[in-house]
Structure formats: structure tokens, C-alpha cells
Design a binder for these strands. Structure first.
Lengths: 343, 343
DNA sequence: GATTCTTTTGCAAACGATTGCAAGATTCCT
DNA sequence: AGGAATCTTGCAATCGTTTGCAAAAGAATC
């Protein structure tokens, strides 16, 4: 009696059973009270809640997850393709991740982050899904794993992917219309006076391939020569040298560059300057993403904007609807041309 | 007999018990086999492993976690102080996060990410720790939550913090010697000819306060006037206007600016140019972090480098040692001055 | 071949929360 | 007051793995 009051402060209450003992009820009742179910008497509930607060008690999520067969955790996985370090400093992915974290939190989910190297771990996606730790998964970027994702999608519904949409694909994807974005960039370069275009970046990843294809569409339609692909790694240290090399070789033969990302465009700008090529007078330049850096280059970058926040909202929204059993279509975001001073 | 072979392909094996039935052994044995324990006969183990592989079976981590009282997950939490959106695009934090993900993965841990707003959720840290979902926690940035972190540290050992080290503090921290870094920056500005210095950034967060204090040390020692603090938000949209305002007001009275981060320095560079102030001729400028952007500004930024990768390694290393029961000291990284062209 | 040691296995009790079912306590009607 | 209807509560099984203990099987010893 008085005993329970006196000792209550120093007893550690770790489990729902401890709390039940303290409150003089059964564990089941405590569980129901804390879950806010209507089946428990208001007075009892308040008493239990007060005790829980007093002792800083929180139900163990592992146990709860096990019993309810859901964890309240969404997995976010970034497959690192060819270029292992590619995304580490890629602010596009990181920004998307930040928005995802916010969006998931808002909906009461936690976020479990995993970066994987598919090449050395072919089983990456099944492993994550099969771990029993996550209710669903968001894949950030298809990298070169399109087929594997397709395979998984057939048997697992709780997945959405950031990336490129291809006609007839079976996994649910959210992403910008890269091909259209590519067209916009090329059209702008041409409108600014460029005729001999180059594409800077790796055309392996689907998103980039689509951007390149879009630009090609325009060049072909306008009767211009085919666009010259200048392949580059994404990590800044390797990219700079490669870009310098490309420019030394082709710089005088081209007058318009469409860079696969703003990050590459910014590096390219530096190299152009180093080689004495004026932007936009000698060479027009367009990027992709509209990252913060695009405003800060000199001159500021003309680029194609992706609405990252909207993308994150779309991903989470679609995933939650799939968790609820709904069938969902892919969601393609419109790109937007942002004209600044490089083209 | 033949039955088990024929049906084995189409039976779904979700639990260790399913697999045990298939292998004709008890669940306990399967568990031991999969855990690679020496107590199980090599032949049985191989048979079980083969079956597991064939059916793509993975033990449920929730159940395992519950039973073993450890989850294999490390929580990473980013407290968002005054300025809610401050870190969203702050590539410093994001880069650190990337390295942490790599480092934790290497050691077999998963990463659970949480961004919290302490102001609206005073209980953020206990909630995370008490959730039972994580074996330990890494706090990225002390923000304005120093005291709360100290409180928690008294009762919870499995925590390390990225941030500033203060004499006599009780939580284990990894971070750059910000004060020393601040001294380096100020010394460089002065060596480059600056005499009337300003500090650009919010001096609220401890790290920034220490950088400011370091710069003050030098100014005082050299008999220069006190450094003018120019308070700024970190989010790029608000920061630009604020910087412009500061420069309009004080731009002609100062000849050296120490920016709290490279991001701010880059924005500042843009505004300086807009207001017709030449760098480094009229005004010297130094940043902090040595983010990729520091190389790409025009002119490239003189800055103080933090070794982010080493920081991530240190955080994980210390945390793992604490999980193992070791007592650990805080770990202070040396900053490094990188002289480029702005000072 | 009997006895003692090792290996290898199975049994069953945890881990901590949730929930269907049924019993006990209240309330409401007539 | 008696009985039906409604609220609250407790009981006990369950989620899927792990692990101490003891039994069974095999190997080694005399």
C-alpha cells in the first residue's frame, strides 16, 4: 500500500508487466490503456498513463513489432552501382533522403538506412525485405539493378522506387520525366545558339540515359549532328581530371554542353574557365537538378529543376497506400527549365 | 521422402520451424546451424544451410532481437535546433551521415535515422533510446541540447556525440577542435592583411561559438579590434538576404570575414561580388569544413578542413567500444588550414 | 564389452507486448 | 429486485528466435 507508493520512485519499470504490477492491474490492461483503446475505463487509463509518464516507460518496439507483425519502420536503400563512391557526396540523393526522413516521421514511421553494393552482394534487396525489420522499402535510384527490382516487385508489394519510368515496367516508381528534361535542356542550348552539342556524364544509369536520349531527340529533330557523349565518373576528384581531358580533346569542336547533373556542370564550369573557354559566349552549358550550387556558380547555371520535396512526398504517399493494400500507378514529375546565365 | 523433395520447392518457409521440419531436425538445431555455432554437426549444418539458401530463408530480426536483447541497429539522430530547416541541405551533416552509414555497415550494424525537433518534443533522446529498437545512439550535433545530452549520458553508456568538446563534460564526444580551427582562420585572414574582422554565422550552436571564440583569441592577442559578429540563419534562402543586409551595413568597414561554414562563405562570396567588393583585394574571406564547394567557388575558398571520414570512423569506433563495456575518452580531431585564393 | 568422455541433438522456457475469449463488475430496464 | 445489456478486466496463447539443461548418440578407453 504505502509501500507501493514509496518504492514506486526507485523501482525500475522496464516492461509492461512491471507497470501492471505497480498499477495493480494485468499486463493486458496496461497494453490496452497505452494503446489508447476504448475498451479500458477512463480512470484506469489515466492512472496508468500517469505512472508510465512518471517512470518514463516506453513499450519495447521489438516485442510489439514481433507480435503485431509490423515494425513501424520503412527501409530506405541506396544501391551503389558501378561507381561506388558516386553518391556519397551527391547532394541530390542526400537532399532527397532528408525530405524522406521528414515525410516518414510525419506519418509516424522510422527510417532505416542501408547503402549497398549490389555487385558484391547480389542478394541486397531480398535480404533487406526478408529481415523482418521493415514494413516497406524505398529504393533510391535504380542504378544498374532494374531487372532485380522488377523481379522482386512481382512478389513484394510494399516497395516504391525513385528513378526512371519505362513503359510497361512492373515496379512502382516515382521520378522526374528525364527524357522530357533532356529535351528541355537541349532546346535551351540550341535556342541560345549552340549547334554542336555534347553530353557530359555516364550514360549507364537509366536516368542519365533518358536525359541523353531526350537531348538526342531534339538534335535529330532539328537536323543537328548527333550529340557527343563524354563519359565521366561522378565523384568530384576523378571527374575533374576526366572533364579536363574531354575538354582538351573536344572543347574547340563543341559549343554546347548538357551535363547530367549540376554537380558535373559546376566542375565543368571550372574546367572551362581553366581552359580559357568563355561561358556562355564560347560554350553554352546546362545542368540538371537545380541544386543549391546552381545559383552559386559564376555565372549561375541554367538547369532543369527536379522537385525533390514533391518527389519525397510522392514516394511516401504511394508507399503508404501500397501498405494499405491499394494498387498504385507510378508517378512522373514534370521537370522545369530554369534559365540563368550559362545558356 | 520423395514427397519432401517434391513439395520443398513450393512450400513457403518463413520461420525457423518451417525449415526445421523440412530438414527433419528441431528448431533449436536450425538456429544453431544458421548462427554458425560449433555445437552442430558439420553435415547437418551444411544440409540446413543449403535448404535455407534454396528457399531464401532469413531469420526474423525482430524475434531474434527480442530474444537476444540486442538489435544490431544503431540509431543516428539529428537534433534540429532553432532553425528547423538548417541542416536539410547542409552537406556537412549529410556527408558525415554517408560515412557513418558505410562505417556501421562494415561493422555489421544497421542504421536507423531520426531527425527531431527538440523544441516540440523535449523527450526526443529518451524516446529513441527507450524504444528498444537500437543498441546505441549517435547524436549528430549538440545543437542547443547540451544539457539534455549530459543528463542522459549519466544513465546511458551507449551513446557518442558529434560536436564540440568542453572541459569536464560527461558525454563522450567526437569532433574537430573548433577553437583551434577558429584561430587558424583568423590568423590566416590577418596574415593576408585583414585587420577589421567579422564573423558570419549564428554563434548560438556550440561549435560555432567555439570557432568564433578562437578567432577572438587571435584578434585579442594581436591587439586588433573585437570581431564583429554577423548573425545569420543557415538555410540558403534566408541567409542570402541576411548576408546582403549585413554587407550593405558593414561591408565598407571590414576587410576580413570568417564564415562559420563553407556554405555561408560561398553565399557570402556571391553577395560580395554583387556589392562590388573584390575578394581577396577588398575583403579576405575564410570558410570552415572544406566541403567540395570550397574548390569550386570563384575564387576558390580558403578554409579550415574537418576530416569528416575520420570523424565518422571515430564515432563508430568509440561507440562500439562503449557497447563492449570499455570506458572511452572523447576524441578531438585536429583541424587543418587549406589556403586557396580568398585569403 | 562395459565404462567414461565428447559431440550432437531436442525440449521447453524465455524475450515483452498484443488480443480473442470469457468471466466479473456495472448499469439499465421493467 | 431480477434479469438483460454493456463495460472492464484478466487469462493465456501467440509472434519467431535463442539457449540452458539434459538426454541420446557416438567415440574413446581399459
Amino acid at each position: 500500500m504505502a509501500d507501493s507508493d514509496e518504492s514506486s520512485a526507485r523501482v525500475t519499470v522496464r516492461t509492461i508487466t512491471d507497470l501492471a504490477r505497480l498499477a495493480g492491474v494485468s499486463p493486458g490492461t496496461v497494453s490496452r490503456a497505452l494503446a489508447g483503446k476504448s475498451l479500458v475505463n477512463t480512470r484506469t487509463r489515466e492512472k496508468i498513463e500517469a505512472l508510465a509518464r512518471e517512470h518514463g516507460f516506453r513499450p519495447n518496439q521489438m516485442a510489439s513489432g514481433l507480435r503485431r507483425q509490423k515494425t513501424g519502420v520503412i527501409g530506405v536503400v541506396i544501391p551503389l552501382g558501378h561507381d561506388i563512391r558516386q553518391q556519397i557526396s551527391d547532394s541530390f540523393f542526400m537532399t532527397l533522403l532528408g525530405h524522406l526522413a521528414d515525410e516518414l516521421t510525419t506519418h509516424g514511421y522510422d527510417l532505416m538506412l542501408r547503402r549497398v553494393v549490389p555487385e558484391s552482394d547480389p542478394d541486397w534487396l531480398d535480404r533487406f525485405i526478408g529481415s523482418g525489420m521493415i514494413d516497406g522499402v524505398i529504393v533510391i535510384g535504380q542504378s544498374d539493378q532494374f531487372e532485380r527490382i522488377e523481379d522482386v516487385a512481382d512478389g513484394y508489394r510494399s516497395m516504391v522506387v525513385w528513378g526512371n519510368h519505362t513503359e510497361g515496367q512492373r515496379h512502382c516508381v516515382v521520378g522526374t520525366d528525364n527524357r522530357l528534361g533532356g529535351r528541355m535542356a537541349a532546346e535551351r542550348l540550341i535556342a541560345a545558339g549552340a549547334r554542336r552539342l555534347a553530353f557530359l556524364g555516364d550514360t549507364g544509369p537509366m536516368e542519365f540515359a533518358a536525359r541523353f536520349a531526350g537531348a538526342q531527340d531534339v538534335a535529330a529533330r532539328m537536323g543537328l549532328p548527333a550529340i557527343l557523349p563524354l563519359s565521366t565518373h561522378l565523384s568530384p576528384d576523378r571527374a575533374s581530371a576526366e572533364i579536363a581531358q574531354h575538354l582538351a580533346e573536344h572543347g574547340r569542336n563543341i559549343d554546347g554542353i548538357f551535363a547530367a547533373t549540376d554537380t558535373l556542370a559546376a566542375l565543368c564550369l571550372t574546367e572551362l574557365r581553366a581552359q580559357g573557354l568563355a561561358v556562355p559566349d564560347d560554350v553554352k552549358l546546362a545542368g540538371f537538378d537545380d541544386l543549391p550550387i546552381a545559383r552559386q556558380t559564376v555565372p549561375p547555371l541554367t538547369t532543369v529543376r527536379q522537385d525533390i520535396a514533391a518527389g519525397a512526398r510522392g514516394l511516401v504517399d504511394l508507399l503508404l497506400r501500397r501498405l494499405a493494400g491499394e494498387a498504385t500507378e507510378s508517378f512522373v514529375l514534370p521537370p522545369e527549365l530554369v534559365v540563368r546565365e550559362t545558356a
